[in-house]
Design a protein around this nucleic acid. Structure first.
Lengths: 148, 148
DNA sequence: ATACACCCTTGACCATACTCCAGAGTCAAG
DNA sequence: CTTGACTCTGGAGTATGGTCAAGGGTGTAT
C-alpha cells in the first residue's frame, strides 16, 4: 500500500506537485526515497505531514512557523507549553493586525462620510483634499496595508 | 525658492532617495527636470505629491491604488463619486480581511484553550494533535495569513 | 514501436515595496 | 587640488508562497 508517487500524493492532499517539491526545498518535507529511475516515493507519513501543513496554513501560520511547529512535534524535549506559547504569540500578532485594520477602516470611513458622492470634480473631493493638504488624523500606522 | 535636489526632498518628506527614484519608475512621480549634470530637480508640487502618497499609504492604500487616486485627482472628468466608490471598495476589502483574521483568531483560541500548558510532550499537545489528525473545525479560509 | 501520461532538474517569474550595491560623475569647501 | 558629500544608472537582493517553462527521461498500454 505504500510507495506513492508525487502526482498521487498531490491528488490526495490537493496541492500541486510543484508545491510538494517546493516544500521539500523549503525543508518542510524530508527528502523522500527514490525509485531507481529517480522518482520520489512517499509514504503515508508524508501525506499526514502535508495535511498538517495545510491545516496549519488555514489557521494562519506561515511556512516558517509551520516548520517550527513540525520541529516541535518531533522534538522530545519540547512540551505542550512550548506549543502553547507559539499559539499565544500568533494570537497576539493577529490581534495587532486586526487593530491596525480597524484603524484603517475608521480613517477611511471618516473620509467616505465627508464625500458628497456627487459630480463635484474629483480634485475637490474631500478625500482627495484630505490627502492633499491635511493630516488624516489618528491613523499612526507605519505598516502599509499590503504588508499585512 | 524652487529647485530641490533629491536628497533634500527625501529629508523633507522623510522617505529615502531610493524610494523617490522607485516611485518615479513606478509612475507615481513624473520625471523631474534635470540640471545640466543630470541631477533631478524637484518643485514644491512634487513634495506635495509625495506627501499625498505617504498619507494614502498610511490609511491602507497600495501603490497601485494610490496611482489611481493620483490619476483621479487630476482628471477633470472624474468626480467625487468616483473617489467615494474607491474608498468604499477599499473599506469592503478591509472588512473582509478583518473577518478572516477574526476567524483565524477564533480557531487559534480554541486550540490554545485545549492546551494544558504543562510539560506534556509536544507531540501529545492538543494543538499538534488537532493539526495532525483531525479537522480544526470551522475555519474554512482559503487564504494563508501571509497573503493578507 | 510509439503514443501519452508521468516524472526529473534548473531556473525564471508573479506581486509588493522597497533597499542596497558598484562604479562613476558632480560640486562646494578648505 | 583634494576631500567628502551628494548624485547618477543599472541591476540585484529581501520576504512570501508558490507557479510555470524548457528540455529531458520513464513507464505502461495498445
Amino acid at each position: 500500500m505504500n510507495g506513492l508517487k508525487i502526482g498521487r500524493v498531490a491528488e490526495i492532499v490537493e496541492v500541486s506537485v510543484d508545491t510538494i517539491r517546493f516544500y521539500e526545498r523549503r525543508g518542510l518535507l524530508p527528502e523522500p526515497d527514490r525509485t531507481d529511475s529517480g522518482y520520489r516515493v512517499y509514504a503515508r507519513g508524508d501525506v499526514r505531514r502535508l495535511r498538517f501543513i495545510k491545516k496549519a496554513q488555514e489557521i494562519g501560520f506561515s511556512l516558517n512557523e509551520i516548520a517550527e511547529l513540525l520541529a516541535l512535534r518531533t522534538d522530545d524535549r519540547k512540551t505542550c507549553e512550548d506549543v502553547q506559547r507559539r499559539v499565544q504569540t500568533k494570537i497576539a500578532v493577529i490581534n495587532e493586525r486586526i487593530i491596525q485594520l480597524e484603524a484603517f477602516r475608521r480613517a477611511l470611513s471618516r473620509l467616505e462620510a465627508a464625500c458628497t458622492g456627487d459630480s463635484t470634480p474629483a480634485s475637490e473631493c474631500p478625500v482627495i483634499e484630505a490627502l492633499d493638504d491635511e493630516s488624516v488624523g489618528s491613523c499612526k500606522s507605519q505598516t502599509p496595508l499590503a504588508e499585512m
